[in-house]
Design a protein around this nucleic acid. Structure first.
Length: 596
RNA sequence: GGUCCCGUAGUUCAAUGGAUAGAAUAGAAGUUUCCUAAACUUUAGAUACAAGUUCGAUUCUUGUCGGGACUACCA
């Protein structure tokens, strides 16, 4: 039981003892005590004042005395200021926590449950390489999956690859017209970039053709329809759907190029998937329920034969599910896939990591599934995240302002290399060790930068700030870890275990108490992060922990502590801090270096 | 037009209705015979505006002003 839960529980008992009434945890709040007051935890009394008709002072003193009396091993004292009852945790309770957990690698994590959760993330298109926005998605999805695991869930990570449609046909046409047989191998280019370049080429030619047609008197609408290259792409999509052999072969070949490129990037950033869906295999899903929905009068047919659902009661308007020619749309396959996911993986919950521009789409999806009477409608969750914008405005592929993922990673790793060389602390490292360190630091900085913000909010990507390795950053936290490891190496603690019965019984110093209390909170942070699906809580926590440890580090010596008992105490605090930092960063997909 | 989201230090981000609104960075001033100065310490600086709800509002409600997303027989 966490400290806050225990305090809540203890207060409920003491209150009913004092006043002969039943109380619940909703009757009062337990907060951390603000640093400017004496105490560790604070019970806010205002809400109780009303029901008990007592002055805050009297209530606080009575409850404080009772709590200390009832829980002498937990509380060592209290004070009352205005409506706030500040409680002090006993030193013995804090050292006990240390003794029990300082080496526990699973500290803060929850018991395994049988909950099956799917996290769908990444889900790229195969016509162009990944960019900054995809990175936010990948880091977020991966991290949320790990956080859910740490809270006991069984998690299936999945991605649905958008491998068919007009967009990939555009790249294919442009390649046929302009590549003269070039391949990623022949040009030594990464496959996804190679294919992406032909997508850009398509758009360039298309634009020229449209301009040309408009100059010869066509309206913009006409010009866009009649541009020859667009007609070719549409014909190719048609041929693809007919299963035309050479088109399918070309499609397969170019997608393979892209997958090879994606795999390289995924490996580097650590994205992984237990299951990959391909849209080419799922796009026909969902047609069966259309029939069913029509029979049940949940869906309706218009005169031209197209099938719709009316969601105007839900304020979502009408939504098309089958075109007049009988082909399905994105929504239709999404419904089919949702069903397949739940059935194939026996899911309790299905999470979609998708940008907030699809809020409407996901709302409609959920609502249709509910109307169709599928039992899992309420277990579909859209984890929507905000767009990543640049300081200069939005990223637009057409204007070439997109930040490419691979370029960005290279830049971050290069920055790590530059800083490391300037500081010259690891000159004895081998080439491989150095390379690994640069990756650890560069990716650590980037992941931390993108995960430290509440996912729901839009965020601004500032290139200068993102390559900063000081302050609220990944390397800052990694540095604290490395320094602790250095202490442990120098004191030889890896070989000889800390003698716990020798732990200091002297009064804990403020920074020692604060650190232990902060470490204790890790479990609560993990459950909050899982409930809110919000890795930024973990990022903020490990940063604050590192910061507090750094103050402790400058203020008090560990290796040369005043007494042997103090040394043992501080060593155990250090070991536990390093463990929690490692564990927390791991949940963000960030590795820790032994030295940096 | 309609639906939804967002306005907090110069900048980028925090703050389950609770105490004097926190960090980081940029600015100013310091700390290295001693466990890694990628660190630490001190300092200055903000709730868009106006009403309301109440013991108490950055948080809830309404309005105004600014910014954004969505509103395809595209995926």
């Amino acid at each position: 039981m966490s400290f806050t839960s225990y305090i809540q529980y203890a207060a409920i008992k003491s209150l009913s003892k004092l006043y002969g009434k039943e109380f619940s945890e909703n009757d009062f709040q337990v907060n951390e005590t603000k640093p400017e007051f004496t105490g560790d935890y604070t019970i806010v009394l205002f809400a109780l004042v009303k029901t008990l008709r007592k002055s805050p002072e009297a209530l606080g003193n009575e409850l404080g005395e009772q709590l200390v009396k009832d829980n002498p091993a937990f509380f060592s004292g209290f004070n009352v200021i205005k409506g706030f009852l500040n409680l002090l945790i006993a030193d013995e309770r804090l050292t006990q926590l240390l003794k029990e957990n300082y080496q526990n690698e699973n500290f803060g994590k929850k018991e395994k449950t049988n909950k099956n959760v799917m996290v769908e993330y990444s889900s790229p298109n195969t016509n162009k390489p990944l960019h900054l926005g995809h990175l936010r998605n990948n880091f977020l999805g991966w991290s949320v999956a790990e956080i859910l695991k740490a809270n006991g869930n069984k998690v299936v990570k999945t991605s649905i690859v958008n491998d068919r449609g007009i967009h990939i046909c555009k790249s294919m046409i442009a390649w046929e017209m302009f590549a003269h047989g070039d391949t990623p191998d022949s040009t030594k280019e990464k496959g996804d970039h190679f294919v992406g370049d032909y997508y850009v080429k398509f758009n360039d030619v298309y634009k020229q053709e449209v301009d040309g047609l408009m100059k010869s008197g066509k309206s913009e609408e006409e010009a866009k329809k009649e541009a020859p290259i667009m007609k070719k792409a549409q014909q190719m999509l048609f041929d693809w759907e007919q299963g035309k052999r050479d088109v399918r072969d070309l499609w397969k070949m170019m997608n393979e190029w892209v997958y090879t490129g994606f795999d390289e990037t995924y490996r580097r950033i650590g994205s992984d998937f237990e299951k990959t869906f391909y849209e080419s295999e799922t796009y026909l899903l969902g047609k069966d329920f259309v029939k069913e929905g029509l029979e049940k009068n949940i869906l309706f047919k218009k005169d031209d034969g197209s099938v719709w659902i009316d969601l105007s009661e839900e304020n979502l308007g009408e939504k098309l599910l089958l075109r007049s020619d009988g082909t399905s749309v994105y929504m239709t396959q999404d419904i089919g896939l949702a069903k397949q996911k739940f059935e194939e993986f026996h899911l309790d919950k299905s999470i979609y990591v998708i940008g907030d521009e699809q809020l409407h789409h996901m709302k409609v999806l959920k609502e249709i599934i509910r109307k169709l009477g599928m039992p899992f409608a309420d277990e579909i969750f859209h984890l929507s995240y905000g767009m990543v914008e640049l300081t200069t405005g939005k990223m637009k592929s057409r204007e070439g302002t997109v930040v490419d993922a691979d370029d960005l990673i290279d830049e971050m790793v290069a920055t790590a290399e530059q800083h490391t060389k300037e500081l010259g602390k690891v000159n004895d490292f081998s080439e491989e060790e150095l390379k690994e360190l640069y990756e650890t630091l560069g990716l650590g900085a980037m992941k931390f930068y993108l995960l430290r913000v509440d996912p729901k909010k839009r965020m601004i990507f500032n290139p200068e700030e993102s390559i900063d390795f000081h302050g609220f950053t990944g390397p800052f936290v990694q540095y604290t870890y490395a320094r602790i490891q250095s202490i442990l190496r120098k004191t030889g603690i890896e070989e000889t275990e800390i003698s716990l019965n020798q732990l200091s019984t002297e009064q804990l110093l403020p920074l020692e108490r604060q650190l232990i209390i902060m470490l204790e909170k890790y479990g609560n942070i993990l459950s909050d992060a899982a409930n809110e699906m919000n890795p930024s809580l973990v990022a903020g926590y490990v940063f604050n922990l590192a910061k507090l440890y750094n103050s402790f580090y400058t203020e008090h010596s560990v290796a040369h502590a005043e007494t042997e008992a103090k040394k043992q105490l501080r060593l155990s605090i250090s070991v536990m801090t390093a463990g929690v930092i490692k564990s927390g960063l791991q949940l963000l997909g960030i590795k820790v270096p032994e030295r940096m």
